[in-house]
């Protein structure tokens, strides 16, 4: 197995691991599982952002792309996550 194959396998394991963490978070509160929960929401959205970043960087190989492309991708992802969290928390505050 080449170094790149090992790296790809590790990335897949990491992504599967954080998916299971998200799944566990969604199931971890028993009868209160479907009540508003900012902690779960924040964690789950940040975990999703991490997964998207890793997929784009490692599988789509943006880690080898020109810096400008990397910055555009990071800016887009950060803007989307910031907007989603701002909307969520503004709704809770209202």
């Amino acid at each position: 197995m080449s170094a790149i194959d090992k790296r790809l396998a590790l990335v897949c394991l990491l992504l599967t691991g954080v998916t299971l963490l998200s799944w566990w978070l969604g199931n971890s509160h028993g009868s209160h599982a479907f009540a508003l929960n900012a902690g779960i929401t924040c964690s789950v959205i940040l975990i999703a952002a991490l997964k998207v970043r890793v997929i784009v960087w490692e599988f789509m190989e943006l880690n080898r792309a020109p810096l400008r492309m990397q910055r555009i991708a990071d800016a887009l992802l950060a803007s989307l996550i910031a907007l989603l969290l701002t909307l969520y928390f503004s709704g809770r505050a209202a």
Binding site: T19, S22, G26, I40, T41, V44, A48, V52, Y88
Partner: peptide, 11 residues
């Protein structure tokens, strides 16, 4: 990955 977080897991 984002659809899963928003539809299934977030609270």
């Amino acid at each position: 990955v984002i659809i899963f977080a928003l539809l299934y897991v977030m609270r």
